[in-house]
Write a protein that binds this DNA or RNA. Structure first.
Lengths: 180, 180, 180, 180
DNA sequence: CATGAATGAGCCTTCATTCAT
DNA sequence: AATGAATGAAGGCTCATTCAT
């Protein structure tokens, strides 16, 4: 059953996400992932060649590529695109699991060429594309502003501010990088 | 000789910074730190009760508390304070060692109460103080802008942009969060 | 195979008994137990959570609870019960392995609550029960005599006397604490 | 100053007795002995060639040779000698420190030829001498009774009985091995 | 005599990975 | 497909011992 195979693979990945988020990629033993997923340790090595392969799968999902692609798929531009990106980003990373995973992922990025590439893709190519759709051009100023936009969001999830609501934060941020 | 004791302690910490930056706190064996420092493994446990204690020492130095304090110690305010903070921040984290250490530190922050507290101190109390010195007040808008400022800097060091120089980046960023 | 699992577990325990008897619980490295049992070091931690758990298992077997229970299970009383106890005790502790293990166990008893309890059980509750079956009552005099009986046996195995045979010793001892 | 040298040596030994009694000879680190004695770790190795030498010194004092010699030095015989031995033995080993030390000593006896010899001396030669002074002869029966006497005392200190006072115990014991 | 920094061997334990069933 | 027993390579840490000062 290819169906069942995919189900189990998915179950393992999701368990791994929870476990890795809590312990970090290297402190989380595969045995814990197995227990969390309700399968045997051996089975994990049937679905994934090695722990690294599982780490890579989880790490990929922890990056905001999906958020970016979702918004770029629409026809939105300017302010509305910015709001789409900011909203979906916060939706995802307000979840402590994704927040932690992303931080762990970024910290090990240099160890995995695959991850390096994905991060570069996001920070470079995608950033240009977004700038063009938001501002209509992608000069230095626009690129800096886009980075500033995402940096600010990252900083928000790193430590959610006490007295500022999600929406207030986003509103001020958008105004700051998009102008009045 | 108290002198020599401090020298060795420092030598160990610096070796640990290099090793931890490259491998991450948990993948870096203490034996590697020892070799890098040119001392025996046992000696490290003479100067630090445990690996965790060494991690904590290194992690503390990886945060930008020194950068912030240095600039707050001066009389600068407004735009000039911002430039001080941005400049010193980039000076520090343009160094790949500090960049990596900070990322590793942020990713393990939840495991060490001491680190949590230090990060909270930076993201909350210090942020208010900075906002007051930069803008003359610390309302929601100012706080968001300060976070945006530091988030942008973080994002810069995460992936240094290809075509934008350090100074250009900083100039545009400052203009963005400080206005004309 | 539950069969095989029990076999291996037992094989490890028996190897541990030999090794612990010779070196003492704390000087005997787990690696030596592994070699003696013909398994890998890691496997021991599959069957026992920690070295302490293995120590506890071995230490339990080193106490004379089995001897006492075996004799109490019968209908013997008076002199015959005494002879049963003495005979089985000497059978067990004339074996240098058990002799050494018991001495090691008694010396670490205070470190392990489980062991404390087992020893108390033997020295207090069981001693009363034995006194009742031997003498028909368990007043102070009978308790002292029972302790004297077992103390003498312990002293026998501590240093087996040169010119007195096992049976002679037991005969005189029984006469001493049971009267004519 | 030979005076001072002896003082310090003694201070170290006494600290070692306390520490070894609590942790056992092999789990007690020399550093703990040093701290307890209020001297540096290095100094202990000036007074004792090795840890083993310190262990041997402490172990020797933990045996009841002094008790036996003290009583044999007097002119006592028969019942009175028995009471002297029993009384002094209980005086010494009612102290938990000596009780523990003796148990630890007995458990490691086989590792140290010196200790083996001392224990043999007590259990064999001294036992004969005592039997002769107590009973006027040292046949098999008397030897067994002397061992029974000391075995009983050991058993008393192993677990002090709840409802029987020291003096009651000794009285009954003496009556048992010495007859009415 | 005395200190305490320094070493190195060894121990317990964890864990990714393999493999027989 | 699935299990879990088995292995072996490290890793963190302790500690007896040495030695420069």
């Amino acid at each position: 059953m290819t169906r069942r195979v995919e189900d189990i693979r998915e179950k393992i990945i999701e368990a791994a996400m929870r476990v890795f988020a809590q312990y970090g990629y290297f402190r989380a033993p595969i045995s814990l992932v197995a227990r969390e997923a309700g399968v045997s340790k051996g089975l994990i090595f049937w679905y994934f060649r090695s722990k690294d392969e599982l780490i890579l799968e989880v790490a990929s999902r922890s990056l905001p590529l999906d958020v970016i692609n979702d918004c770029l798929k629409t026809d939105l531009k300017g302010l509305e695109l910015l709001n789409c990106l900011g909203g979906k980003y916060l939706d995802k990373y307000t979840n402590p699991m994704y927040r932690n995973l992303m931080l762990h992922t970024v910290s090990i990025e240099e160890l995995y060429p695959t991850l390096r590439d994905k991060l570069r893709e996001i920070c470079e190519k995608r950033m240009v594309k977004i700038a063009e759709r938001v501002y209509g051009k992608s000069g230095k100023e626009e690129i800096v502003k886009m980075r500033t936009f995402f940096g600010s969001l990252l900083c928000y999830t790193l430590r959610v501010p006490r007295n500022i609501s999600r929406d207030e934060y986003l509103e001020i941020l958008v105004k700051t990088v998009y102008g009045a």
